[in-house]
């Protein structure tokens, strides 16, 4: 996910300061990794340099000084383009899970315990996500996406377990 574009998308709701952007982001993705304050301000700084956001106000309340940012026309165009374009990943992505599993299958005399441990780890993650209560009906959208990915990974692991059970490991090495 383009973290920069998500910050821009949050700002479609109107001018906001960094803390508010982080709060809305974390509300949108309750099952995801919280956005770090440092990342918010680094992103805003970069977006300001790219003329996608601009400072519209500096608030000084009881607390620390807060800079309020707004989208520029350029920033609005950028986020609207991002939102309108489908994500295309033509190349096969070989992630950490695939690398680790293939390495285990190729190097271990019996990779099934490793595959079983990985399967359990994903199922536990799924269990925890399913137990979490939803704040509102739309907040489960991001959770559903994580669950669907976990489900896909689990199916792939099941297929790997089946292939490992069927294959002659000695011949494969």
């Amino acid at each position: 996910m383009g973290a920069t574009e998500v910050v821009l998308a949050v700002m479609l709701g109107g001018p906001q300061h960094g803390y508010e952007i982080k709060r809305v982001h974390d509300e949108w993705f309750p099952s995801g990794k919280p956005l770090a304050y440092g990342q918010v301000y680094a992103t805003l700084s970069r977006l300001e340099k790219d003329e996608c956001v601009e400072v519209v106000e500096t608030k000084v309340d009881a607390g620390p000084e807060r800079t309020v940012y707004a989208l520029t026309d350029r920033g609005r165009q950028r986020v609207e383009h991002w939102l309108s374009e489908p994500l295309v990943d033509g190349a096969v992505s070989v992630g950490e899970l695939v690398r680790k599993t293939v390495a285990a299958v190729r190097t271990s005399s019996d990779p099934r315990p490793m595959l079983a441990r990985q399967r359990t780890a994903f199922l536990r993650q799924m269990h925890d996500l399913q137990q979490a209560t939803a704040a509102d009906p739309l907040s489960v959208l991001a959770r559903d996406h994580v669950l669907a990915h976990l489900d896909a990974d689990l199916r792939w692991l099941d297929r790997a377990l089946e292939r490992v059970a069927d294959v002659n490991l000695e011949a494969a090495r």
Partner: peptide, 13 residues
């Protein structure tokens, strides 16, 4: 179904 299995306290494979 993995989603069904994930509601359980324990998986028996």
């Amino acid at each position: 179904d993995n989603r069904v299995a994930a509601v359980a306290d324990r998986e028996v494979r």
